[in-house]
């Protein structure tokens, strides 16, 4: 698909935006400025990613702060939708419409001059030509995601917002979608998508915004964020034939930042996970200590994000 000239000034500007419902703060004083390219919103479920996307989309009124798309406040300005395409997370679509009817309806509601050509182009872009005349109710989850993307792209918006767009897509579909979004971003479109999976950002997002508990926990390019996440201290539980002797030897290793001797085992803080994993067997062998159990602590996504917030 071609991206219109209007993308030249495409920009999303969020300044000290907050959104709360009663006592619940969904988004807390977030600011960023996005221009052409792909930005990933990363965070655990319930972090506030969807709320943030809805604030940008003009579906929610900021409780404080401002949200602007292409220089216009998004709340209560339906005209911004000429320049904005939105792919909501919820799967529900109109099951009685065919894929083509759905995309066509979007084109008509945007009052496009060449509805059929735009519809055809959008369906081709998401590779659903063969299934376009089937009812959406018969589509798989991945196909529904793609037809939603086609509906959002049909008017060639300069800003595209996608909420968990890869949900339900198989690896091939995912790669095709990644290619499509990268091509569009290269032509000047501002693309923002949310995900709770770090690796989804790997091939797509140039910039990453990490949102945790409604706050912007970190921002930067993908490599920086991944380094932050992998270079943090890791915890291991180790059970050996002689815990005290092994602990004394490990304390002199650079990869270890702390050890706690507990009832029959040790809890080891490793500052460098890879180096520790490599060094541990050698040190144990040198001390003639047998390793009975080495268990990395539970490292749920939540704990990784919490580390980012704390640091």
């Amino acid at each position: 698909m071609s991206v219109p000239d209007s993308t030249e000034g495409a920009r999303i500007l969020v300044r000290n935006a907050s959104k709360w419902y009663g006592n619940v703060v969904a988004v807390n004083d977030i600011s960023f400025d996005l221009r052409a390219g792909v930005t990933g919103l990363l965070g655990p479920n319930g972090a506030g990613k969807t709320t943030l996307l809805r604030l940008i989309a003009g579906f929610l009124e900021p409780s404080s702060g401002t949200v602007e798309v292409n220089g216009q406040r998004s709340w209560r300005h339906p005209k911004i939708y000429r320049e904005v395409g939105i792919v909501p997370e919820r799967e529900t679509l109109f099951p009685f419409l065919t894929g083509r009817e759905f995309v066509r309806m979007n084109a008509v509601l945007h009052e496009l001059p060449f509805v059929d050509a735009a519809t055809e182009q959008a369906i081709e872009a998401v590779d659903l030509v063969d299934r376009q005349d089937e009812r959406i109710g018969t589509y798989s989850k991945g196909m529904r995601q793609r037809i939603k993307v086609a509906g959002a792209l049909v008017h060639d918006p300069s800003v595209l917002l996608l909420d968990e767009p890869f949900n339900g897509m198989d690896p091939t579909q995912r790669l095709k979608m990644i290619d499509l979004l990268r091509e569009d971003a290269a032509r000047g479109r501002v693309i923002v998508f949310s995900t709770h999976i770090l690796e989804e950002l790997h091939h797509l997002a140039e910039e990453v915004l990490v949102v945790v508990s409604g706050r912007l926990a970190a921002s930067g390019n993908f490599r920086e964020i991944r380094r932050l996440m992998t270079d943090r201290p890791h915890t291991f539980t180790v059970r050996a034939t002689d815990n005290r002797r092994l602990a004394a030897a490990l304390m002199s290793d650079d990869s270890v930042s702390g050890i706690q001797l507990q009832d029959g085992h040790m809890v080891i803080q490793a500052s460098d996970r890879g180096a520790f994993a490599t060094a541990l067997p050698g040190i144990a062998k040198a001390q003639d200590v047998g390793l009975r159990e080495v268990i990395p602590a539970d490292e749920s996504l939540e704990s990784v994000f919490n580390y980012l917030v704390e640091s």
């Binding site: 989309a57 339906p78 939708y81 919820r90 529900t92 679509l93």
Partner: peptide, 15 residues
């Protein structure tokens, strides 16, 4: 209720 109003409202159509 089912969230599909987003597809209608994300358009420049006067309310």
């Amino acid at each position: 209720e089912d969230g599909t109003l987003a597809y209608t409202l994300a358009k420049p159509t006067a309310r």
